[in-house]
Computed example of a mutant assay.
Amino acid sequence: MWDFDIGRTLGIMARTWPFIALRLVVYFAITLAYILATGTGAGVGYGLGRIWDDPGMFALFGGFIGFGLVSAVLYWLREYILYLVKAGHVAVIVHLVEGREVPEGRGQIDYATSLVRARFAEASVLFVVDQLIKGVLRVVTGLIGGIANALPIPGLQAAAGFANSVIRISLTYVDEIILGYNIREGADDPFDGARRGLVLYAQNGGRMVKNAVWLALFMWLIALVIFLLMLGPAAAVLYLMPGALAGWSFALAIVFAWAIKAALLEPFAIAALMQVYFRTIEGQVPDPDWDRKLSDASRHFRELKDRAASAFGGRPAGQTP
Rank of each mutant, 00 (worst) to 15 (best):
N204C: 02
K86W: 13
V129N: 10
V25I: 13
L294Q: 01
L171V: 05
F227D: 09
K134Y: 13
G99Y: 08
L228K: 09
V94P: 07
M241D: 00
M274A: 04
D306V: 11
L304G: 05
R106S: 09
V166S: 03
L77P: 01
N211S: 06
W248K: 03
G66K: 05
A297E: 06
R307W: 11
F67L: 13
Q131L: 13
L273W: 03
E282D: 12
L238F: 10
Y277K: 07
V255C: 05
L252R: 03
Q275R: 04
Y34N: 00
L224G: 11
R292W: 12
D306A: 14
F61E: 12
G63Y: 15
A72H: 10
I51C: 02
R292V: 01
I6F: 14
K210H: 12
D54I: 15
A212V: 01
G206F: 14
H300L: 04
Y201L: 02
R184H: 03
N204A: 06
L231Y: 15
V237D: 07
V125C: 06
L224R: 11
A251I: 10
F120L: 00
M219I: 10
V225L: 14
G206P: 09
W76C: 01
V116M: 06
R207H: 09
F268C: 02
R23H: 12
G205P: 10
M274W: 14
R23W: 12
I133C: 03
M13G: 00
R196H: 01
A112T: 02
L132T: 05
V102T: 10
T38L: 15
A263I: 04
Y46T: 01
L156Q: 05
I260V: 11
T320P: 00
L126V: 01
V136K: 01
T9F: 13
D192K: 07
A257K: 07
T9D: 07
T320R: 14
V125D: 11
F67W: 15
M1F: 12
I109K: 07
Y46C: 04
G161H: 08
L137C: 07
I222A: 14
K305N: 10
I144V: 15
I270G: 03
V102D: 07
G135V: 07
L265H: 11
A33T: 10
L304W: 06
L74C: 05
V285A: 12
L273E: 02
K134A: 10
D54C: 12
E79R: 15
Y201N: 01
F67P: 05
L96W: 10
K261H: 14
N149D: 15
Q131E: 11
Q157Y: 13
G180E: 00
S310F: 12
P267R: 13
V116L: 05
I147S: 04
R117I: 06
I30T: 06
D130V: 08
L200Q: 00
L264V: 13
